[in-house]
């Protein structure tokens, strides 16, 4: 926090834009969208203000997780080109402010969720924040190349929380949506890790391409893409969604697997531009948006 003006070395108060950047707003957009879809796909109607407040609580919880992640990883971020410009490694924010901001935001998000919805959703939100900060960021990420496989669970919580905020209970469809994001995370992140591999190696993070090599990573991308596709289509034959979602999931998943085959079966040399990997990474984001949009559309308009 700001010190007295009379002190010799006075720290500038943090700019609110840097505090906002600490919440990883781009990641938050996917969290908000999947949580909203989970809430809208639930078979009950929620008053709009309570729905809005629940989604806001999830967004703030995700922001708090991002802030605490950046506080803990400031040293690592400074070593990577992709993250060196973040407020903490760039020296625009002091760690104490970031820590207080993260804890305060987490506490407020839980309070808001409890006030606007129910204790079940609040409990799930608390678990997702603690899982992301303690299990993923502090424990798994610096230790094992399986970090994002298990850590992917943290990012899979939002649709489940959205559903529980609306209904107060867990059901098969949101669990399947949880599973979809969980299985989507490895091909998504490993595609990124393939083209920023040198960054992760420089920071000493044991991402799959750094530890197991490119060939093994590519094979595993393809493996996860195949089981993810099966998990994405499964709600349709199991009767939890209709044909609108079913056909959308089938077409999009075929495309996802086709891009993964391209990535999974190629070998690269020095100076490769990694275009197929970049394409898969970009498409994987659109894929999740389209599928979750289809879940809601299918709930509203059955064909």
């Amino acid at each position: 926090m700001a010190q007295s003006l009379t002190h010799g070395e006075t720290a500038l108060p943090a700019d609110w834009r840097d505090l906002f950047a600490l919440t990883k707003p781009r990641v938050m957009s996917l969290v908000v969208f999947t949580a909203l879809c989970g809430l809208l796909a639930a078979p009950v109607s929620v008053p709009p203000v309570l729905a809005f407040s629940s989604i806001l609580a999830i967004a703030l919880g995700a922001g708090a997780s991002g802030a605490l992640n950046q506080w803990y990883e400031a040293g690592l971020d400074a070593k990577m080109k992709r993250t060196a410009g973040r407020p903490l490694p760039a020296g625009r924010l002091d760690p104490q402010t970031a820590l207080q901001f993260g804890i305060g935001l987490a506490a407020f998000s839980l309070f808001l969720m409890l006030f606007a919805s129910n204790w079940q959703a609040t409990l799930l939100l608390a678990v997702s924040i603690l899982f992301y900060v303690f299990i993923y960021t502090m424990w798994l990420k610096p230790r094992t190349p399986q970090n994002i496989v298990i850590g992917g669970a943290a990012g899979a919580f939002p649709p489940l929380i959205g559903w529980v905020a609306a209904t107060g209970s867990v059901a098969p469809l949101p669990v399947m949506l949880f599973l979809l994001i969980f299985l989507w995370t490895p091909p998504h992140f490993w595609a990124l890790a393939l083209f920023v591999r040198s960054d992760y190696a420089a920071a000493g993070i044991p991402m799959m391409p750094v530890v197991a090599g490119e060939k093994s990573t590519r094979r595993q991308i393809l493996f996860y893409a195949l089981i993810m596709a099966a998990a994405a289509i499964a709600p349709w034959p199991l009767g939890y969604t209709g044909a609108l979602y079913g056909w959308t999931a089938t077409i999009q998943s075929v495309l996802f697997v086709a891009l993964s085959v391209q990535v999974g079966t190629r070998t690269t040399g020095e100076g490769d531009l990694m275009q197929p990997e970049k394409r898969l990474f970009a498409y994987s984001i659109a894929y999740l948006f389209i599928l979750f949009g289809a879940v809601v559309a299918d709930h509203w308009w059955t064909i």
Binding site: E9, T10, L12, P13, A14
Partner: peptide, 20 residues
Amino acid sequence: KPAPFDEAEYRRRQRSRANM
């Protein structure tokens, strides 16, 4: 040498945060 204290910037950030 430590950077000179910029009071105008200090006040601008304080005001901006207070408004937010």
